[in-house]
Design a binder for these strands. Structure first.
Lengths: 135, 135
DNA sequence: TCGAAATAGGATAAAATTACTCCTAATTTA
DNA sequence: TAAATTAGGAGTAATTTTATCCTATTTCGA
């Protein structure tokens, strides 16, 4: 029931890129600023690129930038980019793990709680996060 | 970000005990009814007893019952009894993992999302779950 | 054109957590 | 006293998390 370290780092990466305002940032720079290992950070940034959240440029003067303006990327997208789709319980995402005894009165609750979470995480764009007062 | 199998099973155990209406149910009976292994189910029931959610009676004709009426046990309690306190991110529960760079604009979001989840899970008592229509 | 700086991606490994099992002891009833 | 049952400690297997390392590829600029 906990965010992985990877997801936490991913959010911090995007936050960093958002505050860099379009200037390409190299893995080393991002990792150092956030106190994360460079190799692991690189992996995470690759996932963000594959998800279309960040874009990369190779070679000298290369680095990472956001693929879209901060207002168009949400917390949920970033989390799902590295963790895969949010799933509170197996049965929510894979119904066949649920209906073994054909009636399960908790299933709708998992569905509801998960939908709430998604909605909330979706409501936070990185623009909103940047503008919110720190601490 | 997912419920453990243990927590899922725990909920099913309590649900079973709630529907048994005060009659003691043995581990074997509960496990079989829910398609769970007896040894693992026993461990989970012990945690529920230690948390004050269930009560046990040893010996012949022994078994488990709910320690309180279903209306007084919530989903949150059961989940926390086996998984420990809900924690969306380390920094929510252990602030020192967060303030390394003294400003973290996502922290309040984790706190908010977690509080929402807790509130929702707390609002579901087992009485409410029993009375809700299956599926 | 070459070398340095950077990302891309595959393979692998260490650590932690999850999901269990097994065994022995204690308790209760008939 | 025998059988049925929970209590609890210890151990194990599988999976997931959290990385590291190596090689290839791309890009820039001298």
């Amino acid at each position: 029931m906990q965010l992985t370290r990877e997801a936490d780092y991913a959010v911090r990466c995007v936050l960093y890129l958002a505050s860099a305002g379009g200037r390409p940032a190299a893995v080393g720079e991002i990792a150092e600023a956030q106190g994360m290992s460079a190799a692991f950070t690189a992996k995470i940034l690759q996932k963000l690129v594959n998800a279309g959240i960040a874009a990369s440029r190779r070679g000298v003067k290369g680095g990472f930038v956001l693929a879209r303006p901060p207002a168009e990327t949400t917390l949920l997208e970033v989390i799902e980019a590295v963790q895969g789709p949010l799933a509170l319980n197996i049965c929510v995402v894979d119904r066949k793990n649920c209906d073994r005894n054909s009636r399960c009165s908790v299933h709708p609750v998992w569905v509801e709680v998960q939908a709430d979470m998604k909605k909330k995480l979706e409501s936070y764009t990185f623009e909103r996060l940047l503008n919110s007062s720190p601490r």
